[in-house]
Design a protein around this nucleic acid. Structure first.
Lengths: 224, 224
DNA sequence: TTCTTGTACTTTGTATTCAATCTGTATAAA
DNA sequence: TTTATACAGATTGAATACAAAGTACAAGAA
């Protein structure tokens, strides 16, 4: 064979995917606010592409629950009511319970090490006091658990569920007073996996989620 | 106000949605088989539209998990491995457990009546021995439960999970020997709601799902 | 004033066009 | 025979063009 010149493979994504990722990020970070219109021409100009990939990206966002489109009127960033939030959390609670159950059975030693490292990384991130990296470190921590559950379908579904609330969560994490609580919870979770105590873990995860709901609820109230 | 003349509202859907529904149905009914290529031009000609709405519909199918596309190679109907099926069922088990829990708390009397009627309709459908209407009646029965859970987000997620396996389920339901068992299970479910016995219900639902897994597994094995 | 109606403008829906990539086959070289 | 190369046709990716609604605002009627 000729030697391989390990190419880009990155700029090689179809534009629709690039656009999709860009918009998704923007929505989750709050740069595109709930209710904001997604006008095709506008976005196309801004991103320097034609309307075609924009439209395809919007169809994808729609299916992910991040955008809503009304035929012949256009798309907008999805809004969430308090009820929606409540509903999503109810679902996440059930799915996370499943995830820890599976993970408890299936987590490898290597993954357990990874989990401990993810916790350390999270602590480090809170010290840097940069919201973006804190959120990412928190996601990474939970990603390890989801991966350990060894159920890609579950992972998918959980991801789409958490996406729906993550853009509200940014506000929550902005408040430094919750850092120590989060760190504590993460430690407790590691402890639970150490002992492979499923019921204990389900409980913590439940608290972990409940703690968020009130904070997020505040944010949603303001959005009106 | 002037009197309302409850209009069409049906032929008024954008083509992408018409195409999406058409393809979705075809995939679920098995007219488009797992692994089959979804060629844009071909579908466009067949449905008498241009490639644009076809492409958008494919993006939607993709996000629903019914199609998979490889950049620059095109889309195909998603295949499922046995592992995938196992994974989806694991998730559905958890979600259905949540659904009956919520439904048990929240089901109105009217909905309970609806549920009993749905059961009768299912029995009637099995006597007609028409697979299509049996499957539909079964879905309708479970829809009543999901609606009673009063959590639209949950409903959404469950729907996408069951969609992924329904095309394999057709084969299962084709076998008349399972009719009586299904009828029996439905009766037991009604009984559970009558007594509002959550744990009992979770159990039946679990059996109800497990019964399907083996049959579906057969079908998937054949697909190779 | 308040409600229509008309019209220009914006935006979405769909088709068409052109470019890039992939696939398969046939031919040539080893 | 096997491997490489080249080329043609098929197919996807993206841009552009045109058609159909939808929106907003101004002028005129009630």
């Amino acid at each position: 064979m000729t030697e391989n010149l390990t190419l880009q493979m990155d700029d090689y994504l179809p534009l629709r995917d690039v656009v999709f990722n860009t918009l998704r990020e923007a929505i989750l970070k709050g740069e595109l606010k709930p209710g904001e219109r997604l006008m095709e021409m506008h976005l196309a100009n801004k991103l320097g592409v034609s309307r075609t990939p924009i439209r395809e990206a919007i169809r994808m966002l729609e299916q992910e629950g991040l955008a809503v489109t009304i035929p012949r009127k256009g798309a907008q960033v999805a809004k969430m009511t308090e009820k929606d939030l409540q509903d999503v959390l109810e679902v996440r609670d059930a799915l996370d319970a499943l995830a820890v159950t599976c993970a408890c059975e299936r987590m490898t030693d290597a993954q357990f090490v990874e989990l401990k490292e993810a916790m350390k990384a999270f602590e480090a991130a809170t010290r840097k006091d940069d919201v973006r990296s804190i959120v990412e470190a928190d996601e990474a921590f939970h990603d390890v658990i989801y991966a350990a559950a060894a159920n890609p379908k579950l992972e998918n579904i959980i991801n789409s569920a958490r996406e729906q609330m993550y853009r509200y969560r940014y506000e929550y994490v902005k408040n430094p007073s919750v850092y120590s609580q989060l760190i504590e919870e993460h430690k407790t979770i590691i402890d639970g996996f150490e002992r492979r105590d499923v019921d204990f873990l389900k409980n913590i995860i439940h608290t972990h989620l409940s703690n968020q709901i009130n904070a997020v609820r505040e944010v949603i109230r303001e959005q009106k």
